[in-house]
């Protein structure tokens, strides 16, 4: 049945965006190994509140690995040691009694720290604003079965569309690149006929926005794929790059003009 663990946490505490931060040591004792990682933090926080201390701030919501709210570096790994698992779905049975655990926020220039483990990921929303959609008005759609889409294409599009926008790919990347995130949306829409008309415009605008947000470039370390809780393949980065390079030749004059080239 369940085991009890006694752990030592080193948690990044930072009061605000401009304040200096540091690791603070907390004991976490009597932790049931069936707890999730965030439930372990809950227990520590309840203890802090009872002592009148400021609890550790961290983002979380659905706690079933789909909303993408949570995400912290656990011992230097985005979302912790278990493959294809968000921090909320990580359970304490992967740890051992006596372990020391280092917990930090995502670190990237494009993700400023708000408080403790919470960062501002608004940059990801702005990448989507710059073309991560199909421009179809409500009510303008024709019958859904009017266009047949090969099952393999639809399945591959779904592989990319699963991205939960947590930012682990950025945190894991030595360049703090959001290429996996950006390419997943571009790849999802490029694989479907509905995304066809805006394909060139989309890839150019989204990649330029990605760079404007101060995300780094992809140099193919592959850390993003390894950290991705949805196991999105870096092949989508290759697809994005191919599309982007192609548009350098084919993009129409209007598009380049809008970009000020």
């Amino acid at each position: 049945m369940s085991k009890k663990l006694n752990l030592t946490l080193h948690v990044w505490r930072q009061k605000g965006p401009t304040a200096a931060g540091d690791f603070v040591k907390y004991p976490a004792s009597g932790i049931d190994d069936h707890m999730s990682f965030l439930e372990m933090l809950d227990v520590v926080n309840e203890g802090l509140i009872e002592k009148g201390e400021d609890p550790i701030a961290f983002d979380h919501d659905c706690r079933e690995g789909i909303c993408g709210s949570c995400g912290v570096m656990i011992n230097g790994m985005a979302h912790g040691p278990r493959k294809a698992t968000t921090a909320c779905q990580l359970h304490m049975r992967v740890f051992h009694d006596g372990d020391e655990i280092w917990i930090e926020p995502w670190r990237a220039a494009a993700f400023p720290i708000i408080k403790d483990l919470i960062v501002d990921r608004g940059s990801l929303d702005r990448i989507v604003q710059s073309g991560g959609y199909v421009s179809v008005r409500t009510g303008a759609a024709r019958d859904a079965n009017n266009i047949a889409i090969p099952k393999d294409d639809a399945d591959l599009a779904m592989d990319a569309a699963q991205c939960i926008g947590c930012g682990a790919c950025v945190a894991a990347c030595p360049n703090a690149s959001a290429s996996l995130f950006t390419s997943a949306k571009i790849g999802h829409l490029a694989l479907l006929p509905q995304g066809g008309p805006e394909r060139e415009d989309r890839v150019r605008r989204m990649v330029l926005q990605h760079d404007a947000e101060l995300f780094g470039s992809c140099t193919q370390h592959g850390e993003c794929e390894a950290a991705c809780p949805k196991q999105i393949s870096i092949n989508f980065i290759a697809r994005m790059n191919a599309d982007f390079i192609k548009t350098a030749v084919t993009a129409n004059a209007d598009l380049k003009q809008r970009e000020g080239q």
Partner: peptide, 15 residues
Amino acid sequence: QCTAQGVPFAREYSG
């Protein structure tokens, strides 16, 4: 509407 937006609903081999 959702299909037009690019929602990748499950499909049969017919597409």
